[in-house]
Nucleic acid binder design. Sequence first.
DNA 1: AGTAGCTTCTGTATCGATACAGTACGCGCT
DNA 2: AGCGCGTACTGTATCGATACAGAAGCTACT
Lengths: 361, 361
Amino acid sequence: MRPTLQTVADAVGVSRSTVSNAYSRPDQLSPELRDRILSTAARLGYSGPDPTARSLRRGRVGSIGVLFTGQLTYAFTDPFAIQFLIGLAEAAEHHNTGLLLLPLSEDDEEAAARSVREALVDGFCVYCVPSDWYRSLAQINPRGLPVVGAELRDREAGAMFVGIDEAAATRAAGEHLIRLGHRRLAVIIDRGTPGRGTGPLRVDDFDTLPHYVARERLRGYRDAFTAAGVDWPTVTVVNAAANTRAEGAAAAAHVLDRADRPTAVFAITDLLAFGVLDALRARGLRAGRDVSVIGFDDIPDAATARLTTVRQPAVERGRAAGVLLLDPPPEAADRQVVLPTELIVRASTGPAPTATPTERN
Amino acid sequence: MRPTLQTVADAVGVSRSTVSNAYSRPDQLSPELRDRILSTAARLGYSGPDPTARSLRRGRVGSIGVLFTGQLTYAFTDPFAIQFLIGLAEAAEHHNTGLLLLPLSEDDEEAAARSVREALVDGFCVYCVPSDWYRSLAQINPRGLPVVGAELRDREAGAMFVGIDEAAATRAAGEHLIRLGHRRLAVIIDRGTPGRGTGPLRVDDFDTLPHYVARERLRGYRDAFTAAGVDWPTVTVVNAAANTRAEGAAAAAHVLDRADRPTAVFAITDLLAFGVLDALRARGLRAGRDVSVIGFDDIPDAATARLTTVRQPAVERGRAAGVLLLDPPPEAADRQVVLPTELIVRASTGPAPTATPTERN
DNA sequence: AGTAGCTTCTGTATCGATACAGTACGCGCT
DNA sequence: AGCGCGTACTGTATCGATACAGAAGCTACT
């Protein structure tokens, strides 16, 4: 039988409590006794208090749950997501806490709910979960644990929140394009429709996009363009099958080969924007001259690629979420964090070509 | 006070066990009673059995620990690592199990040991841990939980193991280069020395490299080249500061600008190989003509980049590790899995240039 | 009627620890 | 001696569930 605290206590001739203290509260007993306890424990093959029992008694398990849906692949392919996770992990490590990745099945809602209900965690962070998957954070977590969300509605519902003003960020990017004279825009998003591949999306779809982020970022662009008098329905929205460079290029092909090629393309992530740059290169088009390209995230490679993009503090977002979960500020106001974004202008955007594209160069 | 099983049992007028069964063994009671229990539970705000208490009683927590060291950043920047994790997550999801990421501090060995000792997991998977960090898997896990390793010595120690024959894989790659007439080789590795930046490594260092993978892959190359009569010490080993494209390019610069430029460069990962390709391009050199480049992993982008590389089944490795942990085969022999690798020849390797490189085009 | 067998539910023991109040004891001070 | 106080340790109650043996009730068959 595996040894327990009691086994060790009996062997040393002290009470169970004292052995417990030897591990968890070294200041509560004399160093000699502690050594004696630890060495007999080692002799008996006892490797410290059972984590499960300890958690039950203490009421804290020492890990926070990270909720995903669908493809874990997605979550790990997205550089932003990874940065976020790194920030979260930093905060967690600081609190001696682990991260429990909880892949939630998208098909079996029952099983997903069970995963959440049965997870051994002290709190949840909603990571890559489509908006229509849950109505509110309360639904995700009937257990009353702390949960931090990343969507505006979470913020409005008074839940803990860490995010950015997505729409304001893309509005700034849109205004930049407007100032440069662009009037024909194409937008490339991913996860626009579940299960559908690459292809144009009807623009009136976009208010019902399953992902909050896509919805909001599109809204920001629309606001910038309609404010400048551009008719929004002329904007083409193309869905990419995945958030990858290759799919970005494939999606870009849908608009670049048209006669009324847009003068500017907004990609909802930098990764997709890289694909757009690839597609331009493959066609002998110059980014920032023939077609302006603008991304989102400012991932590390964006600077090298000279990509104009919206920078968001990804690591900081993760860290802030971790801090909220691990020691929530007493003031409710401090439990909602909105981080700043910044438009980083690089060489991939420039004045809209005045002539028709084919006449240039 | 939060409701417990007892609270619900009292409200419904049944025993605690019956309420427990309502959640965990629906076949043990009549559907009517079950409904009655679940609805009063909902009314009382009881959200199912407490996971901690359940884990204590059941002796299973429903998650497996993934051990890292150092930068979580590293673990998530490496495409192979991510593929591995995806495979692991797949197996885990299948068993209704979560993944607990355990970042182990490299500085504070005491704290790291405590993390392992106190982790709420059913088993461990050693993920990105340098070889000199532990002597054997037994040391990592004094609790007697299942552990799966990825190093040969783990296999030799009879522990659970999932891996590839690293040295054989690179030997095949080396033989390919030899057949093409290459005799001057440079090798680019990362994590060659902890804390050191980009730069050449003394070749006699490599048997003491902290990472098993680097050691073994170098060994395979050495074997191939020495078998062909090439003096191994003429091979330059360059350490890259990180496993990134940019650092790969920086490391490549150390050998490409020399007079006796190698005719072939082996990068220990595809990511580094991409950097080498970038460095070649920047110098107007043609991959596969002027300098052959060979990578390792066969990550998705490798095909597009036409990179010759060694393919290893990354996702499969993760999945196999998960299966071993989650339901270990009864036969000891089946608890050690060696997966196949395959040399994928693409355009980045070609015959060694016969004249000196500068004379050719 | 008796008993066998099934389903449905109950009751107690147990998982392995920590919290907290309490005891014992030594020491300095008056 | 008597009192106060701090340190070192003990003992019991408790955390919230599940396992398992057994009881009760009901049908079916001889």
